[in-house]
């Protein structure tokens, strides 16, 4: 599965949103109804899925779906 699809799947599952809402420009908090605790849990789920450590200073910048995908790709990770 491509990184995009896996990220999408995790977001749909964790935030209880529809897949078509999970667009690259969608903001977790503004568009997908997440609160601060949701975003912490999301980052944990990405770490778990992709076997990566995401430091807090990086996590703070991952506010949109696209930012997460670019970040994970930039780390050379795959699902």
């Amino acid at each position: 599965m491509a990184i995009e699809d896996k990220v999408k799947e995790i977001i749909v599952e964790q935030l209880g949103v529809n897949a078509d809402q999970v667009k690259p420009e969608a903001s977790f908090i503004e568009d997908l109804g997440a609160d601060s605790l949701d975003t912490v849990e999301l980052v944990m789920a990405f770490e778990e899925e992709f076997g990566a450590e995401i430091p807090d200073e990086d996590a703070e910048k991952l506010t949109t779906v696209g930012a997460v995908i670019e970040y994970l790709k930039g780390k050379g990770l795959s699902a």
């Binding site: 605790l37 912490v40 849990e41 944990m44 770490e47 778990e48």
Partner: peptide, 10 residues
């Protein structure tokens, strides 16, 4: 500890 849910306490 880094994997404990932020929702655990609430």
């Amino acid at each position: 500890p880094g994997r404990c849910s932020p929702f655990m306490i609430p």
